[in-house]
């Protein structure tokens, strides 16, 4: 049935759109970063879903197993998770510095400051 076949992709899209909505509709920089994180998580799920083969097992060679899931997306995503947290930390520290020099983390107030 098509609902079960594509259910994972739809969840990915829902998560991605939630993240996108937060990024474009909130002006608080921390909320924007949280939105980007949700967006990023949806991409992780998309990749892992494409690697799955029904009836397969985790890609570790074992006896009596012939079908393995695709190891490539796992490699890409496990490194991407760690890289993601490092870049998130960088973004958060930028927010802390913005707060220190502008006194606010609201995007529109920062823009006002810059223009005036």
């Amino acid at each position: 049935m098509i609902v079960f076949e594509l259910f994972n992709y739809w969840i990915v899209i829902v998560l991605m759109m939630i993240g996108f909505f937060i990024v474009i509709s909130r002006s608080n920089l921390i909320k924007k970063i949280i939105g980007l994180n949700i967006f990023q998580t949806s991409v992780f799920i998309l990749y892992i879903s494409t690697g799955k083969i029904s009836g397969g097992t985790a890609p570790i060679i074992a006896e009596n197993v012939t079908v393995y899931s695709n190891p490539l997306p796992h490699v890409l995503i496990l490194t991407a998770i760690v890289v993601g947290i490092a870049t998130t930390a960088l973004a958060l520290s930028l927010v802390i510095r913005i707060k220190a020099s502008y006194g606010t983390v609201e995007e529109n107030e920062i823009l006002q400051r810059d223009q005036s």
Partner: peptide, 8 residues
């Protein structure tokens, strides 16, 4: 989804 390394 068989992604044990990612789950860790």
């Amino acid at each position: 989804m068989d992604a044990v390394d990612v789950a860790f």
